[in-house]
Every structure is written in structure tokens, then in C-alpha cells.
């Protein structure tokens, strides 16, 4: 089977800090996968490596069998943690932008979702609230019919209603042959949407299992397991 994302001994070291430590990972198509871990565990680093914003210190990362390059960027749809949309653009212009550069962009889907959100095509991004900007960015990212969606903390710092909106948008744009990788530290809210979860700590994968298996075998939710594994009270977890 062709893995949509593959990491082989992937290592990333910054000047003083080892963000990822010889990570091995394989993601199959058609899954919604949670990349879970506390802040600083390497989640964002892994995602940035996957979309070519960083280069590995050692090892390799492959998207659909290729190293990150212009071709892989064409099949990866990335939602960054921060708002990357140019503030001066109007809604219509940013939709045109995505349509211009991404062949897999579904303009009709985007327009429909934007209208549903109550946004006018002439509205400038500068005038929108933070929450609205985030939703707009999500709409644009999910309107692409990509093979791999990388969502970096899509629900962090958003109110519960917005969280619901975000998860519903992800679900309704889900396609069977695509993989969605959601990085978050808020597990309870996303657990029922996930097929598999990856626990990441200090740049190493602690666990990579299906949600069903965790509940079956351990009789607890992923959220409960996560709290156990990542306890911060000083007690040993071994």
C-alpha cells in the first residue's frame, strides 16, 4: 500500500533543542488521525517538515513517496496555527488566490461555506474577528480536494461553538482517499472524529493505535489514556 506520509528515522535538531528524534511513522490513506502531545512535543515541527517549511537534520520524510517539493505541495493542504491570509485581501480575492494556485480547489464548495458563514465577497480580511479569520482559513483549506490535510491546532483557543463548526467542516469535506492529520492537545473534543491517534512526547512517538483498539483493550477513552501517559505531577509513567 502506498503510504501518504512516511517518516524514516526523521530527526530535526534546532540550535540547542532536539525537536524530533529518529521518528518512524506511516500514515495510510483514508484516515483521520490525531497527532497528540503537549506543547513542545514536536507536533508542529513534524507538520512543517511534511509541507517543506523545514528540512530534516537527519532521516527522511516522504509524501506519497516523494520528498517535500512543489509536487507534494500540490497534494497537501495545510492549515497553519496562525493566520496566514494576507490582511489586505477581500474574501473574493483570497478565494481567487486559492483557485489560481491549486488545481484541486473546489470554488463552489468554498463559496457555499463562505456564504453560510455570513461573509460578503467584498469583505476585507483585516476587518474580520480572529475567529472568523480562522474559519475562513479552514474553509479554504478544506475546499481543496487534497490527498493529505495537515491541520495544526485547528481547535486550540476557539470557543465550543466554533470547535463544533470546525469539526463538522472537517467531517463534511472528508473524502475516503484522503488522510487528515489533526494536531491538537485538546483530545476530548476530537476523539470521536479520529480513526487513529499518535502520542508524541519530546520528539518521540510513544504510541500509534486506532481509537477503537485503545477503548477495546484498555477500557478507557483516548483522552483518559492521554492524561495518564502525560501526567505532569512528577510521578513516573513507567
Amino acid at each position: 500500500m502506498e503510504y501518504i506520509l512516511e517518516c524514516k528515522a526523521l530527526t530535526k535538531r534546532y540550535e540547542s533543542n532536539l525537536a524530533l528524534d529518529a521518528v518512524d511513522l506511516r500514515l495510510a490513506p483514508g484516515r483521520i488521525i490525531g497527532l497528540l502531545g503537549p506543547n513542545g512535543s514536536g507536533k508542529t515541527t513534524l507538520i512543517k517538515l511534511a509541507n517543506g517549511l523545514l528540512t530534516p537534520t537527519a532521516g527522511e520524510i516522504l509524501i506519497d513517496g516523494q520528498k517535500p517539493c512543489a509536487q507534494t505541495k500540490a497534494i497537501v493542504s495545510y492549515l497553519p496555527e496562525r493566520n496566514a491570509l494576507p490582511e489586505w485581501m477581500r474574501v473574493k480575492q483570497v478565494i481567487d488566490f486559492y483557485a489560481d494556485f491549486y488545481a484541486d480547489f473546489r470554488r463552489d464548495a468554498a463559496n457555499a461555506m463562505v456564504a453560510q458563514l455570513g461573509l460578503e465577497p467584498t469583505q476585507r480580511i483585516k476587518t474580520m474577528s480572529k475567529g472568523t479569520k480562522e474559519k475562513l482559513q479552514l474553509i479554504l483549506v478544506m475546499s481543496r480536494k487534497a490527498k493529505l490535510y495537515l491541520l495544526d491546532e485547528p481547535i486550540g483557543g476557539v470557543d465550543p461553538a466554533a470547535r463544533d463548526y470546525i469539526l463538522r467542516t472537517i467531517l463534511s469535506n472528508y473524502s475516503e482517499d484522503a488522510t487528515v492529520l489533526i494536531s491538537t492537545h485538546l483530545i476530548a473534543d476530537v476523539e470521536q472524529v479520529l480513526d487513529e491517534v499518535i502520542f508524541l512526547r519530546n520528539g518521540r512517538i510513544e504510541l500509534h493505535e486506532s481509537v477503537d483498539a485503545i477503548r477495546d483493550e484498555r477500557g478507557k477513552s483516548v483522552d483518559a489514556l492521554f492524561r495518564e501517559v502525560f501526567r505532569v505531577d512528577g510521578r513516573s509513567n513507567d
Binding site: I32, R168, L171, S172, V193, D195, V211
Partner: peptide, 14 residues
């Protein structure tokens, strides 16, 4: 499957 998934708020594979 898609509608049920959306309604229940769960993964379509589930």
C-alpha cells in the same frame, strides 16, 4: 455514511 457521520459527529470509518 457521510450524513450519519456528520449527524453523530464521528469518523465516517467508524
Amino acid at each position: 455514511v457521510r450524513d450519519l457521520a456528520l449527524d453523530a459527529g464521528v469518523n465516517p470509518n467508524t
